[in-house]
Design a protein around this nucleic acid. Structure first.
Lengths: 329, 329
DNA sequence: CTGTTAGCGCGTTCAA
DNA sequence: TTGAACGCGCTAACAG
């Protein structure tokens, strides 16, 4: 491995001069700059980022914390968008990223987790989809040892920023459009899991709408799975004017149930990802740009790592009519 | 940040002694070992992996090379299984992993890519789904600067191992079962993309079967998308006894086309992931364990990084009957 | 504008 | 069995 020392010798300058050229310091004559760059090229020199990090004490890596399962699942597609957005932005900002899956840290308490991250030179963490039940990560956040960005959970402190769309408003918006389009009076709402932060926010949005438009609403707990939504719809949709679901996947389940029952009800979903397969129908949904959200999360965590304070970041959403012709692949 | 120096001072020993305890060297008395460990615990000392790597010159990180798109896609679910399998195993083997997406290295030629990886202290690479058209990565592999493992492509040299199931045999197996179950005589085969290594292997499997059982076969190029498979099936399935598809997703597309045409044909797929949604049908498919494949790939790349030679690793597959009731989420 | 020097935190001789 | 000393490759004062 060719080191900075050899480059310096080859160029006939000091090591520090090479370093300065490398890092774009001012006050270097064009002439020496050229000499150094020539040497670098000739020797095919590659800077050692490890040594650089050690020397400059710029450790500060960023951990992306996701919770995929051994079983393939629809949400994996969202995870990929998160990863893609984060890695692209991290490369742009020159931040090293470590991908961490929940299974790798299962069983660790907050203290072990802290040690684990520190030993990996991690100083910033992005947590995707924090659960209300996850006391360990919440402790980690409260301890403020790391710069944290929480996606889709309203957690903020001096070292923690929250990034997400306004779920309350988004749920309100998409349901309102659906209700008004078809002059519905009664709603079946299939919500998300109990332990998710967004679930409650979306229910609030529904309640606001129901109050405002003087509607009636039946809320049934879903779990973001197609199957459960299907069963709920089979049981309760008949007496309702429309079905509002807290995810596109559940909307598909509900839609299939309606088809099986041979009745029509407007259905609306949430997420706006193209995973629904070909069924020749259409529906309203909330579209979020998971890539952009994750990209922003990286920017925010960088700010925190550089000493900024935590804040609440609200990303834009839109309501779109999706055609089920959108294909999975 | 508490360093090894403070631990040494606290324990009343030399730095090197602490280092030896840390790395499990022999010839350390139980007594000093205890002193050191106590100090470590008291000070809450965390070894700096960066400094350790620099000092021991053990760089050797592992890059995982994937190609997800900005658009959500079914294959994302397979990617997640790959990532999960690789990261779990890497943690077990204590290998540092860097996730790299194709978009991050787009436009680089083999030489730039080499420099990029080297500057990141990467010495091993796992390439998932290498395309025949990707001359740059193929050059990278041929250059032998890195320990490479290629998943789903039959590329082997001294520094390159191939890991995948036997696609020829798997395609043969699943099609044979489907054909024999229903006594089919003519097949519509919807293949994968032209530029994939596995596409050709699977076609070979089909050809072997056709010859052995004296069948007739019409091959149409698909692209692993539901939509294309649907269109192909609409056009050609009517005159054929069954439809064999090179992916589950295409099988769904074909199945939906058959339903629309209101005709029945046995359909078989490939992959065995549960992404098909609820349609109340069933079909044969090849099941591969993507997690296990990726896990094995990491083991193999570790062997290569430690000086081993390249080889061809064939992972097991099985033929299963999948019920479409398997739900996406 | 350039070179000298002193570390960063740790692993690894080699003497003691 | 232990510790002093050196160096990994690089950055960052400071001196010239």
């Amino acid at each position: 491995m060719v080191s900075i020392k050899e480059v310096a010798r080859h160029a006939g300058v000091a090591i520090s001069t090479v370093s300065k050229v490398l890092n774009g310091y001012p006050n270097i004559s064009e002439e020496t700059k050229k000499k150094v760059n020539d040497a670098i090229r000739e020797l095919n020199y590659i800077p050692n980022s490890i040594a650089s990090a050690l020397s400059s004490k710029q450790f500060g890596r960023l951990a992306l914390l996701l919770d995929p399962k051994r079983q393939t699942q629809a949400i994996d597609q969202i995870f990929m968008q998160y990863l893609l957005g984060a890695l692209d932005k991290a490369k742009e900002l020159n931040v090293e990223v470590v991908t961490v899956f929940a299974s790798m840290i299962a069983g660790m308490d907050a203290e072990e987790l802290t040690r684990y991250f520190l030993s990996q030179s991690i100083s910033g963490i992005i947590i995707y989809g924090l659960s209300k039940e996850d006391k360990i990560l919440q402790k980690l956040i409260e301890d403020r040892n790391f710069a944290c960005v929480v996606v889709d959970a309203p957690v903020v402190n001096e070292r923690t920023t929250s990034v997400s769309i306004d779920h309350e408003q988004a749920q309100y918006d998409v349901a309102k459009k659906t209700v008004l389009d078809d002059k519905c009076k009664s709603i079946l709402y299939i919500s998300g899991k109990k332990d998710g932060f967004v679930t409650e926010q979306r229910i609030q949005g529904m309640k606001r709408l129901v109050e405002e438009l003087k509607l009636s609403m039946l809320i049934r707990r879903g779990d973001f799975s197609e199957m459960t939504a299907r069963n709920v719809a089979l049981k309760y949709a008949k007496n309702r004017d429309c079905v509002v679901c807290a995810s596109d996947l559940m909307a598909i389940g509900a839609m299939n149930a309606l088809i099986d029952m041979d009745i029509f009800r407007p259905v609306c979903g949430f997420d706006g990802i193209t995973l629904m397969g070909y069924v020749g129908k259409q529906m309203n949904t909330v579209r979020q740009d998971f890539y952009a959200i994750s990209s922003r999360a990286v920017e925010e965590v960088k700010l925190l790592m550089d000493g900024g304070g935590g804040q609440q970041v609200v990303m834009p959403h839109s309501i779109v009519k999706m055609y089920y012709k959108d294909i999975i692949c």
